[in-house]
Design a protein around this nucleic acid. Structure first.
Lengths: 298, 298
DNA sequence: TAAAAATACTCCATAGGTATTTTAT
DNA sequence: ATAAAATACCTATGGAGTATTTTTA
């Protein structure tokens, strides 16, 4: 069975006249006769009652007519879908990210991408920052957000966002009137700190404090900046978080700029080096645009 | 697009290896490569990422893989359905009948036919006895039940059932003790009669009465035997109905055999002379069987 | 270096064309 | 007598084969 045969059959079923059907198919009448005979042979049932004056569908032919039309439509549809998928207009894209990307960067990227590619299904997965890289390598996700460096040659990364640390202090803090705080002024404060294991922020802060000449007194550790802010609000100490955390708009605490040896911290987008998916490329483009606008805004 | 190409594509999508896929398809590797390239060209999108070591579906390929498998399954299914329709195992059969056939004959035929052809959809239409013939000629129904003769050379008929008339009398009738009634004994009774227009029963009864030497006094006319029986029960008169009407099991009236010049009345099955539908043939076979058993039972 | 996909070319099966016959109205 | 489907026969496109080249892990 070939589709050509089905097309012939469907056309003849519509015309009920070999000559006219053949003309519509841009072939001559004899080949059409032969193809129909062959089809009937293959199926093992007459599909048309035909005399020299009259052509009519048999019950079997009528059933096949319905099915065949549907099949032809499905084929056209499938080809179209594949074509559009090739242009990156439809499909699926898995995105992995860590908590820190969800404050300002990711929402804007996703919003723009959805607007430009409404028929693309986005599969979003939050995961630990250390797992993002593995997920990219394994192919579990197509694109991920992480903090560089990624240190794997099979994965390409591109920094989207650089942001400073800010200090989170209670509203009644002695720093409440200060516009910015020098890092070494915090030497005697109780620190609420990131968990060491799964955040390079921990390392960045610790290193900076040592450079500033003190060893912070850590009174609490947590992974989530929101929790850190709650603890600050409760008076447990002060915390250093990335600037974008301010976007959660927390009341009851104050955010202050830090001066001193603290470096900027970076968020990068990462993807498998040879993943030629057109969707991936579209996503990266949107991500770059969003990041550019974001940066200027910051 | 031809199905052959889709089959190649699906197989390669399963194997992800040109050599193995070609072996499964009983062709050599180069034609497979070419067909896949051609398909990609036609669609305008790469369907496989391929290096010499690794073949993988692209997003577009993955979509098409799903659609193509479904399409191939549908094609197989459609061919099968058509094949079975050709053997009369599935399909649709339109049956037209008049009221008089519904008492004993039709139920049994339909029951048997449904048992033997569970996948055939029966479309049943009750219609006036005069319309059955037209419906057959126009092709609106495939097979019809009517009272012969049909008087159209394009329609074949076959008598299935001959049945006598019986008298319907009230329970308190003077005939209640009689085993049978002679037609001319009814000469003075008020008659509840079939409508003249659409029943040859009217003609049969009137003719017989004249032969018996009287003109029946008609007090009521109706098309439905059930109504006639109700009227008899209500004491409006007596009626002559076909024997099979007894099957409705009416209380409150008595049925009595008639002796005299009343002929048997017939029910025939009829169909378009050249309707080669295998379903029709099956139906006729079942009808004949059912009628044979019915006759012996009567 | 080897395994596998792509390319080059050759051949033939079969789809389609033209001419003609058959058949039912 | 005629219109339309079937049959006969011919032609040529394109699918499949073999041999070879290219590529990358």
């Amino acid at each position: 069975m070939e589709l050509k045969t089905l097309r012939y059959f469907v056309t003849l079923g519509e015309e009920l006249h070999f000559g006219r059907a053949a003309r519509r198919l841009h072939i001559s009448q004899p080949p059409l006769s032969r193809q129909i005979s062959r089809l009937e042979e293959e199926i093992g049932a007459k599909l048309f009652y035909r005399t020299q004056r009259h052509v009519e569908l048999t019950p079997a032919g009528e059933l096949l007519q319905r099915d065949a039309s549907a099949i032809l439509a499905n084929v056209a549809e499938a080809m179209n879908t594949a074509r559009r998928a090739g242009r990156g207009e439809v499909g699926k894209l898995s995105v992995g990210f860590f908590l820190g990307a969800t404050y300002t960067l990711l929402p804007r990227i996703l919003q723009n991408f959805r607007a430009q590619h409404p028929e693309v299904k986005l599969v979003l997965q939050e995961m630990g920052i250390t797992q993002v890289l593995d997920a990219i390598i394994s192919g579990e996700i197509d694109v991920g957000f992480l903090r560089p460096p990624s240190a794997d040659p099979a994965v390409l990364t591109e920094v989207l966002l650089r942001e400073p640390f800010v200090a989170v202090v209670p509203q009644n803090s002695r720093f409440r009137t200060a516009k910015s705080i020098s890092l070494k002024d915090l030497a005697d404060e109780p620190f609420i700190m990131y968990t060491p294991g799964n955040s390079i922020l921990y390392t960045q802060i610790m290193t900076a404090c040592h450079q500033a000449g003190f060893q912070p007194r850590i009174v609490q550790e947590t992974r989530r900046p929101i929790t850190m802010i709650s603890l600050v609000r409760a008076g447990a100490g002060i915390a250093l978080v990335t600037s974008s955390v301010q976007a959660t708009g927390n009341k009851g605490v104050l955010f202050r700029k830090i001066t001193g040896p603290l470096p900027m911290t970076e968020i990068a987008v990462a993807w498998r080096a040879r993943n030629p998916s057109p969707l991936l490329q579209s996503f990266l483009k949107v991500a770059r645009q969003a990041a550019r606008r974001k940066s200027t805004a910051t």
